[in-house]
Amino acid sequence: MRTFAYSRADSVERAAHATTPTAAFVAGGTTLLDLVKLDVMQPSELVDINALPLKQVEWLDDGRLKVGALVTNTDLAHHPAVKQHYPLLSEALLAGASTQLRNMATTAGNVMQRTRCPYFRDPSAACNKRHPGSGCDARDGLNRMHAVLGGSEACIAVHPSDMCVAMAALGATLTLEGPDGEREVPFGEFHRLPGDTPHIEHDLADGELITAITLDAPLAPAGSHYLKLRDRASYEFALASCAAQVALDGDSIGTARLALGGVATKPWRCAEAEAALAGQPATLESFERAAEIALADAEPREHNAFKIPLARQAIVRALREAARLAGTTQEEQA
């Protein structure tokens, strides 16, 4: 049997110091153990962080919500503060995986989950992410599930998270604890584009631990919607998903937040489309124009071209729902 060392971290500081480059933290284990069993990840040491006191959800004085790294996806989705003030996040979490998985999966683990590219998950296939320099079997292979945004010659693997798409739209900050102390990274800067180094997926240094993710203060009053499009009704990763949040200013759009999932190599914030929506009437034409802008740079491969019109549909429908809800909220407040 392939053996590995196992230890249970009893403090954040020690967890962050105790690790070697081939060690891995284990939280819910739903990504890690799966990939170990497939022989894709081979950590020599597992540091179990489940005993660390990182399970709180708390409001900060500046109106932001701080979520501990070990809060489960289920607890976060059903937390009263999240349901009331960040329904977009709750919806996105509940669109992901299954109840059993969400009960185990943690907030930080979700951010760190690996791609579902089948060539990444098959050790006998060529994959620059798993084995730098080995090539990419997906580029000219069965790439129906792959990215049309943010890809490179080396890698077109999708970042599969739903939760992260909502966080990208809401705005958030990660708190990291490492051998050199604590630092903060804006959510949008945490995940990396693959470029020539698809094996480097994020901004975390060796031994660094995510301790919390703090959500920006809620946009209010606003409406939001997370729409996930996939083959079957549940328990499948997105072919295209969209997190949309709209605050109205009278009949027109005041602020819009927009992010995409299932189509990009990282959780994909659509800043230009957001800017283009501001001040526009909340109509289908505005939404369609925003979708065009968001997907202007999309590059299809042989089997995933359908994701471009599909993502367009996701954006238009999510914005329509968000605007409708924003209208309702506005009326209620009036």
């Binding site: 579902r116 089948p118 599930m145 079957r232 549940s234 328990y235 990763f237």
Partner: peptide, 12 residues
């Protein structure tokens, strides 16, 4: 594998 080979789930 059963994640990538799609069969109906309860919701379907």
């Amino acid at each position: 594998n059963v994640a990538d080979y799609i069969v109906p789930v309860h919701a379907d």
